[in-house]
């Protein structure tokens, strides 16, 4: 496992994910991906589901990847990487490895659309089969590559183009699917949540390093604030991510062996959800008097879930 150390040391890591990609200015995907690929010294084979990351980093004739990389479709990043991992095992057994002196790690990236929704079956399958890979969900809470449609990760009250606010609508009606817990329920040896940016950089890098050095299927759900569709200024990406953590809208925790939960960051004082919601255009309609009940509901749910996490951690079961 790579020793992450301090940021001054970590910043000496040569980038294996190059700039010149076409992600929006301030896109959190770039931050998360850089940290994940820098969190190991092993060689990497990566698969990526169709989505923002894929379309922006492999626009022919350019690639942003200094590691082996594969994109097949929207719903099969996990299946694709499971095939590559199986080939690695087969060739190792048959003494036909391409680089015998190098360990290879397998990573799949998918957005929440490719992970929570259309790719969920292949992720669940690859996880159940026990392939040795890390799946990182870049969770921007909607189909942002195609102009911001809802997904099963879109939080209640959020405006998207397919759950729009309107005269009689407060936006998304359903609560965000709890994918991290669903992945833990698969019995994965390691599951975690993470956010990008300088405040929690070590939390993310360590989780990635840990996941990459764990044998078997591991999963990181990384919140990826979307400047374009969440409607905030590009320079605020890290602040928004931090607020998601400080309000406990997106708590940072990890689960080992499917059950052992550790909260990896506890806000000194939990901020009210308005602090997070009010910074994003997708929630602006919730601040109208007739929708104030939605914010109350969100707060209630956040409180309940935060309580649940703490109790689960304490119980240690």
């Amino acid at each position: 496992m790579k020793n992450i150390g301090n940021l001054k040391e970590f910043a000496c890591t040569p980038d294996r994910f190059q700039g010149g990609h076409r992600l929006c200015p301030g896109c959190a995907h770039g931050m998360i991906v850089r940290e994940v690929v820098n969190a190991t010294e092993d060689d990497l084979v990566i698969s990526t589901a169709t989505g923002c990351l894929e379309v922006c980093t492999a626009i022919y004739p350019y690639t942003s990847w200094d590691v082996s990389w594969l994109h097949i479709g929207f719903e099969n990043a996990a299946a694709g990487i499971s095939g590559a991992e199986a080939m690695y095992k087969a060739l190792s057994r048959k003494n036909r490895s391409y680089n015998e002196d190098k360990k290879v790690k397998f990573v799949a990236f998918g957005g929440d659309g490719g992970t929570y929704d259309i790719g969920f079956q292949s992720l669940s399958g690859a996880t159940e089969r026990g392939h040795d890979f890390l799946y990182v969900c870049l969770d921007n809470e909607g189909y942002m590559n195609t102009g911001g449609q809802r997904s099963s990760s879109t939080p209640i009250g959020a405006h998207t183009t397919t759950s729009p606010r309107g005269r009689v609508s407060y936006g998304e009606k359903n609560r965000k699917k709890d994918l991290t817990m669903i992945m833990a329920a698969h019995g994965c040896p390691y599951v975690a949540t993470a956010v990008p940016g300088s405040k929690h950089w070590k939390d993310l890098a360590q989780k990635a390093a840990k996941a990459l050095s764990t044998v078997g299927p591991t999963f990181i759900n990384a919140l990826s604030p979307c400047t374009t569709e969440w409607k905030f200024k590009p320079q605020d990406t890290v602040e928004i991510a931090d607020l998601a953590v400080e309000t406990c809208m997106f708590p940072l925790y990890e689960i080992e062996d499917g059950h052992k939960l550790t909260i990896t960051y506890k806000p000194k004082q939990k901020l009210p959800v308005e602090e997070y919601l009010s910074r994003q255009g997708r929630f602006s309609h919730l601040f109208k008097p007739e929708n104030s009940w939605v914010i109350e509901e969100i707060q209630k749910e956040v409180d309940r879930y935060w309580e649940y996490l703490q109790r689960k951690e304490e119980a240690g079961v």
Binding site: V45, S47, L70, I72, G73, E75, N76, A78, A79, G80, I81, S82, G83, A84, E85, A86, M87, Y88, A90, L91, R96, Y98, Q121, S122, S124, G125, A126, E128, R129
Partner: peptide, 21 residues
């Protein structure tokens, strides 16, 4: 690899073939 659907079967085949075998 006994996958969970034919879609994943062919996807895993693509991943494996691109991997080089």
């Amino acid at each position: 690899v006994m996958v969970e659907s034919e879609h994943s079967a062919m996807s895993a085949c693509v991943g494996a073939a691109a991997a080089g075998g």
